[in-house]
Amino acid sequence: MRLLSPAQAQKVAVATMWTLAAITIGILVFIIGYILVLGLPYVTWSFLTEAPRQMGRSGGILPMIVATVAVAGLAVLIAGPVGVATAVYLTEYTREGRLTSFIRFGADCLAGIPSIIFGLFGFVFFTITLGMGLSVISGALTLALMVLPTIIRTAEVAIRAVPYSYREVSYGLGTTRWQMITKVVLPSALPGICTGVVLSVGRSISETAAVMLTAGSAPRMPESMFDSSRTLALHFYILSREGISMTNAYATASVLIISILSLNVIAYWIMNRFMRRVR
């Protein structure tokens, strides 16, 4: 016996699906709205440009902004070239075979590893074994490993989207393979590669567990790559968890959310222009 006729089932199903979608979007809007409404009023110029006082109870977040930019920037500066080179190797220098499956398998597995394990690894490997200590560079190297699969994947997709005929034209005009890659393929794939890089910056900024164990949590201005530092996400965690200052926690979270939002908008914008050009 059937409860519903196919036409009724169709109506119920469509309504359910749309409700689920609406709830999800509602959650997203709620999270962003909640943080921004409670936090933005406290994001003042002095909040952005002053050092914290009394462990962050008052004062600003300048050292954390610097630490975040340094750690995330350095991470992407390391992972970017490595990831793009890997993608170039996979697309232009080999045919599909054992080696490419092996490399892809490695990248896919790396992508699934939780950040806390990256943190532990970075802690024993970079800070202790290599003696870098809790520092910006330890954090950056750990994050670089973490975002590497994303960069490889997006770069590979972007490079594959460059028409094969461009490569033939370039060879036909007497370029070597390397010239063809650097002068024709990579420039054409650049927007796609940038999208992956920008999204990786976003992930690096958001990351907390891995940075906590490798870059440390000292709330002061990092003066070199080997200084311990506290990133924004970690600062927010510490402020809210230890109940140091709710207003500053909200304000810090607002800065985080705004950064992530902007990075996503930038990534989306670049990608859109790219798609239009490649058609």
Binding site: P163, S165, Y166, E168, V169, S170, Y171, G172, L173, G174, T175, T176, V184, S188, R277
Partner: peptide
């Protein structure tokens, strides 16, 4: 080979201007 390809210039069936 690169020099050879400059000496023997090829035009393809479908025009492919680079972007």
């Amino acid at each position: 080979v690169a020099a050879l390809r400059r000496r023997v210039g090829m035009v393809y069936a479908v025009p492919v201007p680079l972007p």
